[in-house]
């Protein structure tokens, strides 16, 4: 049994496998299928300062080896989360982390400040990369200046592990990564979804109510992997890699490209037990290669 534990800033994780925001509900949705304590962490649905109804149906379209979504951050707001959801999830024996989303700097700051007060939420993931809301975080996440502004402001009120989730919808993701590192982020996670589109030719209408939406799933993996690789060369803070992971081999690819930890998103829908299988697969891989600790593998490309 290899040592699977890793650290992301001050955050200690029993293994590098986490589940991605918006694909794992609040964790409880999966409790019938797997032991949630077997994974390194869970990022809950994007949470905003006020409740959001999200976008109109249809919000989802399957595409070759992937899917488009335009959920639009539907959530009941941070106060509802604190009063009604947090009590049910706070004792789950893994890192329960909140994906903080918003439209203005004030929103992000207010939301982060409230989450900071919750003892059993050891980290937040700042979503400056949601492509599905009009003044969504992506407006901040696509310019180094905008990204740094948000991170600086949140850093002032948030004193636990601050992870910033980056958008792939940029020319050079390393610029943004460097900007948020300088602004005080403890880690970056990448990638969020790629902006995409699909059309129903018979009806001559877009398949999503919002016309465009976020692409995820196996089809985005090569792009995500390349971005993790580039970002690893550009920053010193740990990277959480995600985008299209479907098995332990994919996860090991991300770790070799420079990710300290990984997240699984869309594939949870296809196999609700995949995250546990990936933990087991990484462990067997390490044993087979006689590697003592998973952290030795980070960026260890030959």
């Amino acid at each position: 049994m290899a040592n699977l534990s890793i650290n992301i800033g001050a955050l200690k994780c029993k293994n590098p496998v986490m589940t991605a925001s918006g694909t794992f509900g609040y964790g409880l949705e999966y409790a019938d299928f797997m032991d949630l304590s077997k994974i390194g962490g869970i990022f809950v649905k994007g949470t905003t300062i006020t409740p959001r109804e999200g976008n109109d149906y249809p919000r989802m379209a399957e595409t070759p080896s992937g899917m488009l979504n335009a959920v639009g951050l539907q959530n009941k707001g941070v106060d509802y989360f604190i009063n009604y959801i947090y009590p049910d999830i706070k004792d789950i024996d893994t890192n329960m982390m909140v994906n903080v989303s918003g439209s203005t700097i004030e929103d992000y700051v207010a939301c982060a400040e409230k989450i900071n007060a919750l003892d059993n939420i050891p980290a937040i993931e700042l979503n400056i990369s949601c492509p599905n809301v009009k003044q969504g975080g992506m407006a901040f996440g696509t310019s180094p200046h905008g990204a740094a502004e948000i991170v600086k402001a949140v850093r002032k009120v948030y004193n636990k592990t601050l992870i910033v989730k980056l958008s792939p919808n940029v020319t050079d993701i390393t610029e943004i990564a460097r900007a948020v590192e300088t602004a005080g982020a403890d880690a970056v996670s990448l990638i969020n979804t790629l902006l995409g589109m699909a059309i129903d030719v018979e009806r001559r209408t877009p398949l999503l109510s919002t016309v465009t939406g976020g692409l995820s799933g196996p089809c985005v993996k090569p792009v995500a992997l390349r971005m993790v690789y580039q970002t690893h060369k550009a920053v010193k803070i740990p990277i959480i890699g995600l985008g299209g992971i479907t098995n332990w081999q994919d996860a090991v690819e991300f770790i070799l490209a420079g990710a300290t930890a990984i997240q699984i998103g869309t594939y949870n829908f296809i196999d609700p037990t995949i995250s546990v299988k990936v933990v087991e697969g990484i462990n067997e891989y390490l044993d087979r290669h006689k590697i003592q600790s998973v952290s030795e593998l980070v960026g260890a490309l030959g």
């Binding site: 919000r59 959920v71 829908f269």
Partner: peptide, 17 residues
């Protein structure tokens, strides 16, 4: 019969008003 991804309440893709 709204279009679904997860089927278990995790993705919020299948909503009805």
């Amino acid at each position: 019969e709204n279009k679904m991804a997860c089927g278990i309440g995790a993705c919020l893709c299948c909503v009805e008003k």
